[in-house]
C-alpha cells in the first residue's frame, strides 16, 4: 500500500548529504514504501534544504522497531541533557558558544 501519510515540519540544524554538510530547514516524516531498505514499509525521514535543490537531502528508512527506539533515544537524550543546555539553545537549535 501507499499510505500517502506525511508530516512536514520546519527544522534548524545541519545535515551531511551527498555533497557534504548543509543547513537543514525542512523535514518530512512518513511511513511508506522505502527506496532502498529491504521491507515493504519503513519509517522514513527526509531532512532537506529546498533552497539548495532536491539533492540537498539526508534520508533514512528505518524499520518500525528501530525508528521507535531511535525516537525514544532522542527524547531521552534531550531530557537527560545537563540542566540549562537545551533550554539555552538558540533559535537555530545550536547551544551558544562558551
Amino acid at each position: 500500500m501507499c499510505t500517502y501519510r506525511t508530516t512536514t515540519l520546519t527544522v534548524a540544524g545541519s545535515g551531511k548529504g551527498a555533497e557534504g554538510w548543509f543547513p537543514v530547514t525542512d523535514a518530512s516524516v512518513y511511513f511508506d514504501h522505502p527506496v532502498h531498505a529491504p521491507a515493504d514499509h519503513t519509517l522514513n525521514v527526509d531532512l532537506r534544504n529546498p533552497s539548495r535543490g532536491a539533492s540537498a537531502r539526508v534520508a533514512v528508512e528505518l524499520d518500525p522497531v528501530s525508528a521507535r527506539a531511535l525516537a525514544l533515544a532522542i527524547l531521552d537524550m534531550l531530557d537527560s541533557a545537563p540542566a540549562g543546555l537545551v533550554d539555552a539553545a538558540t533559535p537555530s537549535g545550536v547551544p551558544p558558544a562558551g
Binding site: 512536514t8 525542512d26 527526509d46 532537506r48 529546498p50 535543490g53 532536491a54 539533492s55 534520508a59
Partner: peptide, 20 residues
C-alpha cells in the same frame, strides 16, 4: 517540475513534501 535533473528518490521526496 519540482526537481528537474534530480535523482528519482530526491525528486519524489520534494514532490511528497509539496503535496504530490
Amino acid at each position: 517540475r519540482e526537481a528537474p535533473g534530480a535523482s528519482p528518490d530526491d525528486a519524489a521526496a520534494v514532490a511528497r513534501a509539496a503535496g504530490g
